[in-house]
Structure formats: C-alpha cells, structure tokens
Design a binder for these strands. Structure first.
Lengths: 120, 120
DNA sequence: GCCATATTTCGATAATTCTCGAATTATCGA
DNA sequence: TCGATAATTCGAGAATTATCGAAATATGGC
C-alpha cells in the first residue's frame, strides 16, 4: 500500500541503523546467519528489557532490515539480506556519476577471505 | 583527541545521512565532484534558511562525510570520499562471516558504466 | 479451562533532535 | 574605518525519538 520513494526508504533504513542497540542487533543477526535468533535471546544478549527490544526490532523490521516468523511461542528474527542490499546499492549508486573512487574496489579494504561470493 | 570506536563513528555517519535534507545535500555534493559547492548555494538549492543548513552541514562534517574550506568569504563544501568509504566498509564488513550473499557482486545491481574504477 | 511462557502494545516521561530568526564573526572593497 | 556580503553561532520552542513498567495478546501443556 504505502509505496515509499527510494530515498525515503533509505532514510528509514539509515535511521534504524543509527542507534547503538539496533546496530548491534542487526550485526548480530547478520553474523547469526539465516537461522536468526529468538527475540528473548536478543534482548537478554543486549541487556535491554523485552519491551524496549520489541520496539527496536519493530523499527528494524519496518525499515526492511530484518524479518520475523513465529514458531509456536517463539519469534525468530533474522537479517533481511535483500533489504540491506537495497540500502547498500542506494548508497553506492551515486559513485558512478561523480566519485567512482569513493566506492571502487571496496572489497580490497575488507578482510574477506577470497571466496567467490564475497569478492565477486 | 576524541577517538571514537568504529561502531560509534558509523552511528554518527548513519544518523547524519538519515535526514531528508542532509541526504539530499550529501548526494548533491557527491555528484558535484571534487570542486564541491558553496554553502549559500546549497541552502538555496534545498530551500532551507542558511542557519538551518549550516547546522546540517556541520553535522555532516562532524560525521566525517563532508569537508569544508574557506576561500575569502565563501565556504566550499565537498564530499569526503574516504569518510564515506569508511562507512561503506564498516557496513560490508560483516558480510564475510555470515552473509556473503548480502553484498557479493554488489556492482552488478548498479547502472554503472563498466569503468575500471567503478567496477574494480 | 487454567496457568505459565514469550512477546507485543500501551502510555507516560525523559531525552534528543530539528528549525529558524536574531545576533555574531569573518572577509572584502572602497 | 565603514558598509555590504557570506556564513556561523546562539537561544528557545516544536517535534520526534527513546525508554521501560504495566497491561494485553498469543501459544502450549496439563
């Protein structure tokens, strides 16, 4: 229903990540892989009350950075890879006209093992 | 003096970009190239009062996303390419452990002409 | 149905950020 | 030095965001 302009979508994602707890949670979920983590465990790990964490997770989900599914009483949260990818592409988009040196050969600065996926 | 942890630095940059006017200004400066733009012109182009724009530019500069230099009465602002690059590298860093498909082959999604710099 | 568990939603306060006119600083030209 | 221009800093009100306990919702086991 609510189709947002690309830059508004990006602003929402940037704002969601611009918070100590939420950024830590998102990175934790990325590292956790596709299995994700349970809401309660996330809150405990970060040392914040469940209600506060619920707000943060809702913010991340609304921004398209995480996804959730319920299995019985537990709610699993996992990183939304395509969503994060959209943000990265948006941020990289302006490199072509104006500043290719800003993002050219980005992977050279990462300590990535040279796997096909990461350095593709 | 004030050496910030990497994630705090990233949060500052993310927060700086998570604002309609500031994001528009930063993208404008990236497109403008190394010559940058004059403060007054930026404010006029965005339709905000000079004092408001000054705050926004200071926020971007403090976050390490733009730089300024004065030439006589004019202050030139330009995108801080290494600064933005640091943010991108930080955001990409977790791909290696956990989710390489999140950022692998990112440039395939860009409408970049296949210049060596952009697709390096 | 009842109780326990997992999580969210509500609601109210605290903290932060945003905005912009007015005052201030800096620079130049005459 | 004076006046004009460019931009910033100050200050205060408006708007937004953050926090978290209490109440509500959802699920499963007995």
């Amino acid at each position: 229903m609510n189709e947002l302009a690309p830059q508004d979508h990006a602003i929402e994602a940037l704002a969601a990540l611009a918070h100590e707890t939420r950024l830590a949670v998102f990175r934790m979920l990325v590292k956790a892989g596709p299995g994700g983590l349970i809401a309660g465990a996330i809150a405990e790990k970060q040392g914040v009350p469940p209600s506060t964490m619920s707000h943060h997770l809702a913010t991340l989900e609304h921004a398209g950075l995480v996804q959730s599914t319920r299995t019985s009483r537990l709610i699993h949260y996992r990183a939304d890879y395509p969503g994060m990818r959209r943000l990265l592409v948006f941020l990289l988009a302006d490199c072509c006209q104006g500043a290719p040196e800003m993002c050219g050969d980005l992977f050279a600065d990462l300590n990535c093992p040279p796997t096909p996926l990461c350095n593709a």
